[in-house]
């Protein structure tokens, strides 16, 4: 459901354009496969929050099979990965998992995801490249 409604990025150029074109808002891209159960769950959630975060974030989906160009660059080997960009800068977030580059597990709490996006947005507005997640996920989600 979510994957149908949210905008898809079909090519690498579209991905780059999406990141570049947004001046004021955080760009949230979900890399994965639309048919993957993890992605389905996460897309559902992203769809639900998309409207609520639209003032400071825009959400795109990207199929890693369709657009394999970033797979090595961004190490897109997980079934589902969410990355954040702001003004052509890759935003990092310390989730406590050891990987600050991306969110690579299914976060099923709407408010938590909104909080994370908001925190990253606020940090980005202040010129930060790395923000600390409002919640520590080191114990909850293990690889």
């Amino acid at each position: 459901m979510g994957s149908i409604v949210l905008p898809h990025l079909q090519t690498a150029w579209h991905v780059d354009q999406a990141i570049l074109s947004e001046e004021e808002r955080l760009v949230v891209i979900r890399f994965g496969r639309d048919h993957d159960p993890d992605c389905i769950r996460q897309d559902e959630l992203l769809y639900k929050i998309a409207e609520r975060v639209k003032n400071f974030a825009v959400i795109y989906l990207c199929d890693v099979d369709q657009v394999p160009d970033f797979n090595t660059m961004y190490e897109l080997y997980d079934r589902m990965t969410i990355m954040f960009f702001y003004r052509n800068k890759h935003m990092m977030c310390d989730f406590g998992t050891g990987n600050n580059n991306k969110l690579n597990w299914v976060l099923e709490d709407k408010q938590e995801l909104i909080d994370i996006i908001e925190t990253i947005y606020k940090g980005a507005k202040k010129g930060r490249g790395l923000v600390v997640s409002p919640k520590d996920y080191s114990t909850r989600y293990r690889y």
């Binding site: 690498a12 150029w13 052509n88």
Partner: peptide, 18 residues
């Protein structure tokens, strides 16, 4: 999309190694 576009070229993207 333009032909022969190199991913990340338009924005000077850099990857990372974790």
């Amino acid at each position: 999309a333009p032909e022969n576009y190199v991913a990340g070229l338009g924005r000077g993207a850099t990857g990372f190694t974790t």
